[in-house]
């Protein structure tokens, strides 16, 4: 069992992070906490993707010395980690930042209208005003 966990410990870490984020998104009653949960969730996914690109004993995928002219020599693939997950996650990071930005702007709108970011209080205000 321990062997199994250690051989895939990256997945366990990301799953735990993801559960924390998911719980915060659904269970917390404060909008900012929900938003932080969303960020944790997205970070977990980013960690997950990046960890899939790792190869034991490999280095960053930057080829120094293999520039112009001698492109015919075969590059040893196992020496460089997988670049594709990194590329995907650069995009996903930007997407998550943009989502956070829009969500914060929405929170500003909510705060201007109700002067609070607690879901319970907002529900109470809406009930009192009959909307």
């Amino acid at each position: 069992m321990l062997e199994y966990i250690i051989s895939k410990y990256n997945f366990w870490i990301y799953v735990i992070l993801m559960m924390i984020g998911l719980y915060a998104m659904m269970g917390k009653r404060n909008f900012v906490k929900k938003l932080i949960g969303m960020n944790i969730f997205q970070s977990a996914i980013i960690l997950f993707f990046v960890s899939t690109g790792v190869k034991a004993g490999a280095t960053v995928p930057i080829l120094s010395g293999h520039g112009h002219g001698h492109g015919h020599e075969l590059i040893e693939v196992a020496k460089y980690i997988n670049p594709l997950p990194h590329v995907l996650m650069l995009t996903a990071i930007v997407v998550s930042i943009a989502t956070t930005g829009v969500a914060l702007a929405v929170l500003i709108l909510i705060y201007r209208r109700y002067n609070t970011l607690e879901e319970d209080e907002i529900l109470k205000i809406r009930k009192d005003t009959g909307v």
Binding site: M38, F48, T99, A103, V106, L107, I110
Partner: peptide, 22 residues
């Protein structure tokens, strides 16, 4: 009430998009 509806949509929509990404 639209901002609150939009915020709930952001949270649930992001869960959906993240599940897709997973």
């Amino acid at each position: 009430g639209a901002p609150i509806a939009a915020f709930n949509y952001i949270i649930i929509g992001t869960i959906g998009a993240c599940f897709y990404l997973l």
